[in-house]
Design a protein around this nucleic acid. Structure first.
Length: 875
RNA sequence: GCCGGUGUGGCGGAAUGGUAGACGCGGUGGACUCAAAAUCCACUGGCAGCGAUGUCGUGUAGGUUCGAGUCCUAUCACCGGUACCA
């Protein structure tokens, strides 16, 4: 009660006091700690866990505010809501920071977690902190290690060679991110490709299920599902065997276009293809070329954009139908990792083959005709992708002539299969998941190498394999690789001397199952039966940049857990929301050498002309101009980051939360604008003042709907329309920005409403009290304080029922219709709500401006859309 | 290169095939003030007009429709991902 007095007596909104009071109350009540409760529907709301990079950034604030709004909204709608938080604590940045600051990655990480936890708490999120964990703790990753050893036993984890970026100067493996223009980021050395043995998970065994599962996820964005479908890349085609002159083994290619088989004029193979390696042994020129292909990084973007180059191997393949001799070429655009590492080249109907044939003067044959048109072998035409066109026919192909794609495909499949030269096959673009990383700060891979028994999984009673945290870290070599004492162990099978695996897991391993661990804190196992109460996640929220990798591994791992009997559902999350980035303007000054000094937006004043157009910017410190560099993602490199903590200290958490929900719809990028933030602070102050002024007035009776005058009715109708809109915007559309806009309109309306009669004050009370509830998910501290100011006892407002619109209050007597003549707006008319189409048309024709446009013209057609529009077509 | 997305006033954005620009920011004018801040009031897409109103206008070029920011085709620019950043 003390609090009510204190806050109620202040006419001005004081965010600091309001926020600390509300947060203290929630903490004391343990308001957001939840348990399984079968009497209420559960709702698991999860925002992707943060990497503890050092400080919260605006992207985090946006992510967790979206989650918090949804969580509180669902709780007010009667759900048992779980909103957890944790730390994706392993990763490369900790190693980089360790080198830079000469500290251990673990120490740096824990310090960041402590700092960022405080920052998150200051934003007042309804998080169950009792479930918090960091993924770098052995009591988390031991279960990941256990799962891996079980997958080894099931044959779902295996070891094979794979290519990595190798820095020949630093003698280290580089991440793709660390390769810049083909060079190592620290050494500047030209990067090379190198094959090393690595562990893989057989995600391809689940390719079909991962593809089909997308059809069971109506709550996921289509963009994400399309990207995943394309990434998985199921294609039906033929494997065709080409005999090779003087070779025992045939060369096998995969093609989705066997109908073009008679157009094949050469065969292209990858540089790593065994046939290429063999040919190079007796061909120094080819060996030199293969060596050259080893330069550069391994990323797909780099491989696919490099200049197309090739060299003949001197070998010849035999065309399976004609028996023609076809030269076998090494081509740098053929990837060993896709299909068989060899493709039949059809330069007449494939653009890449076409360019390659032109460059190296290889023959081009037309075997497809579209619309009977002749092909110009000098000019590329995309008939290849037109395989389903009705008028597409195979030509110049003997027995295939006149067939369409499907007919030619089936004919060849049958013919080649009968002669043992080919096979129908489904090929996937998806590759198995390589989980080995040659790094220190990650979960140790629980494998022991024994000279006799080879790779042996660490027995479960010896888990976890603990990563030492108190280490010196130089960056060149992993401390566990460098430490013979850590490496040396005995073989669990034969008891002989053996060595531990020193590679660690890809950090996507930790983030693939954290959502399940939140449901089972303290479980003696990866999860326990509580998982099946909470899972699947009802709403998952995270950046669109995770559309493929994380979200695919996340789905895959859930299926692994299901098949291990740990969870019952097939998919980990039923609904997914992908938020956009947080961006801000950039400012800079150019130095004499052309380099740029980036200036933080907080240090700049914007100059405008009399029409409010931006004409320049001045540095506050010296009043001199700076260049405007465009709006970009907040980053250290462009110095355009805005610190959430500074904003919270200056405006309060509610204002920051309100702005990040108002400035853009969640899926779009959000431009940070301090002036915009001030606008939100202005709104909260006006709302505060409106409520405080109202409670200072005399008592009022209950609203009596029958006794309301037109003005009172109108305001009350707007209130109930707003309830409808906000409920739909929060619950279904996730259009938080328009929900808040409608609440601003309602505040503008109640602010103009000067009616001091009994019923006037009663309606105003209903409006303000309802607004406090509608705003609670977004600005919970303000709502907490104003709820008390309105005369209620202090309580967890999320337990108040969400307002329901009163259908009687929504009734309108008349509607406004737009009237068009020939599709152009010529006026508006007010019609009774129950007016017929004929009455609406008559009123429309009676409108003077409409009549003027109709004069002298014959009306040919009238379209009346009830409640919306009348369009009169004349002429 | 490939896959996915976005493009609307001075700016962020609204409009779920039916009145383009809600709401907010910025700006202009005014009130209050010794002054400033805060607050309040009015106006604010371009062009023409005192106004009523007309006209143009949603990256660009076409198309479908009574009606297109929204659907279709092509094209340009930017953003995300591209398997070892997370």
């Amino acid at each position: 009660m003390q609090d009510i007095q204190d806050q109620g007596s202040h006419n001005d909104y004081n965010p600091q006091a309001v926020e600390s009071a509300a947060q203290q109350y929630w903490n004391a009540q343990h308001a957001y700690e939840v348990k399984e409760d079968t009497s209420r529907p559960k709702y698991y709301c999860l925002a992707m866990l943060p990497y503890p990079s050092g400080a919260l950034h605006m992207g985090h604030v946006r992510n967790y505010t979206i989650g918090d709004v949804i969580s509180r909204f669902q709780r007010m709608n009667g759900k048992n809501v779980l909103q957890p938080m944790g730390w994706d604590a392993f990763g490369l940045p900790a190693e980089n920071a360790a080198i830079k600051n000469n500290t251990a990655p673990a120490k740096w990480t824990y310090k960041n977690i402590d700092h960022m936890r405080d920052q998150l708490k200051s934003l007042g999120y309804a998080i169950d902190w009792s479930r918090e964990f960091a993924t770098c703790r052995p009591d988390y990753y031991r279960w990941e290690q256990q799962m891996f050893t079980r997958l080894m036993k099931k044959g779902l984890a295996y070891r094979k060679n794979a290519v990595v970026n190798w820095d020949p100067v630093d003698q280290t493996v580089l991440a793709n991110e660390q390769v810049i223009d083909g060079r190592g980021w620290r050494s500047g050395a030209l990067v090379e490709k190198r094959e090393i043995p690595q562990w893989f998970l057989k995600i391809t065994d689940y390719a079909q299920e991962l593809l089909d599962g997308l059809d069971t996820l109506p709550g996921w964005p289509d963009a994400v599902k399309t990207m995943q479908r394309n990434w998985i890349g199921r294609s039906e085609g033929l494997e065709i065997h080409f005999a090779v002159e003087n070779e025992a083994e045939p060369l096998t290619v995969f093609t989705t276009r066997p109908d073009t088989l008679m157009g094949v004029t050469f065969v292209s193979i990858a540089g790593e293809h065994p046939l290429a390696l063999k040919a190079a042994r007796s061909n120094p020129q080819l060996a030199a070329f293969l060596d050259e292909l080893k330069h550069g990084g391994v990323s797909e973007a780099e491989l696919e954009t490099q200049e197309k180059r090739g060299m003949p191997t001197g070998l010849f393949a035999i065309h399976p139908i004609t028996g023609d001799k076809l030269p076998v070429w090494v081509a740098n655009f053929v990837l060993m990792g896709y299909g068989t590492g060899a493709v039949m080249a059809v330069p007449g109907h494939d653009e890449r083959d076409f360019q390659f044939a032109h460059k190296y003067h290889l023959p081009i044959r037309q075997v497809i005709a579209v619309g009977g048109a002749d092909y110009d072998p000098q000019q590329w035409q995309d008939w290849y992708s037109d395989k389903t066109r009705a008028d597409m026919r195979v030509i110049n192909s003997g027995a295939l002539d006149g067939k369409n794609y499907r007919e030619a495909f089936d004919f060849l499949a049958d013919t080649l299969q009968a002669s043992g030269k080919g096979l129908r096959r489904v090929n996937w673009r998806l590759r198995d998941w390589g989980v080995s990383r040659q790094r220190y700060w990650g979960c140790p891979i629980p494998v022991i190498y024994c000279p006799k028994c080879e790779a042996v999984p660490v027995p479960e009673d010896q888990l976890p394999v603990v990563l030492p945290e108190d280490v010196a870290f130089s960056g060149v070599q992993s401390p566990i690789k460098a430490d013979p004492a850590w490496r040396k162990t005995t073989c669990p099978q034969c008891g002989g001397p053996a060595e531990r695996e020193t590679d660690t897991f890809d950090t996507f391993m930790e983030s693939s199952w954290y959502y399940a661990r939140y449901t089972s804190p303290g479980a003696n196992g990866q999860v326990d039966e509580r998982a099946n109460y909470w899972l699947p996640v009802d709403q998952y929220i995270g950046g669109i940049e995770h559309a493929i990798l994380h979200l695919l591994y996340f789905r895959f791992y859930h299926k692994l857990m299901r098949d291990a009997g740990l969870v019952k559902s097939d998919e980990p999350a039923t609904n997914l929301l992908c938020q956009g980035m947080v961006i801000a303007e950039t400012f800079y000054r150019e130095n004499a050498d052309g380099s740029k000094d980036w200036i933080n937006p907080a240090d700049v004043d914007i100059q405008r002309d009399e029409k409010a157009r931006v004409i320049g910017a001045l540095l506050k410190a010296d009043g001199k101009p700076v260049q405007i560099g465009g709006t970009e993602k907040m980053s250290k490199s462009k110095n355009n980051g805005v610190d959430p903590q500074t904003m919270v200290e200056k405006f309060g958490a509610d204002t920051v939360r309100l702005f990040s929900m108002f400035a853009a719809p969640p899926e779009q990028s959000l431009e940070w604008s301090e002036a915009g933030v001030e606008g939100m602070a202005r709104f909260l102050r006006r709302f505060w003042r409106e409520v405080i002024t109202h409670v200072g007035q005399p008592d009022h009776p209950e609203v009596d709907p029958a006794a309301l005058d037109a003005g009172q009715k109108a305001l009350r109708r707007q209130l109930h329309e707003t309830i409808q809109k906000v409920s739909d915007d929060f619950g279904r559309r996730h259009a938080f920005n328009t929900a808040i806009a409608s609440l601003m309109e309602l505040l503008n309306a109640v602010n103009k409403f000067s009616d001091q009669s009994d019923q006037g004050r009663a309606v105003r009370h209903e409006v303000l009290e309802t607004m406090v509830l509608l705003l609670n998910p977004v600005v919970p501290h303000v709502s907490h304080a104003l709820w008390q100011a309105l005369g209620h006892p202090q309580r967890v407002l999320d337990d108040q029922p969400w307002p329901k619109a009163d259908s009687n209050a929504l009734v309108r007597d008349s509607l406004t219709l737009a009237v068009q003549v020939n599709g152009k707006l010529r006026g508006t008319i007010d019609v009774p709500a129950n007016a017929s189409k004929e009455e609406a048309e008559a009123l429309a024709r009676a409108n003077p401006n409409v009549a003027a446009f109709l004069e002298g013209q014959a009306v040919r057609k009238v379209i009346v859309v009830p409640g919306k529009i009348v369009n009169i077509v004349a002429g």
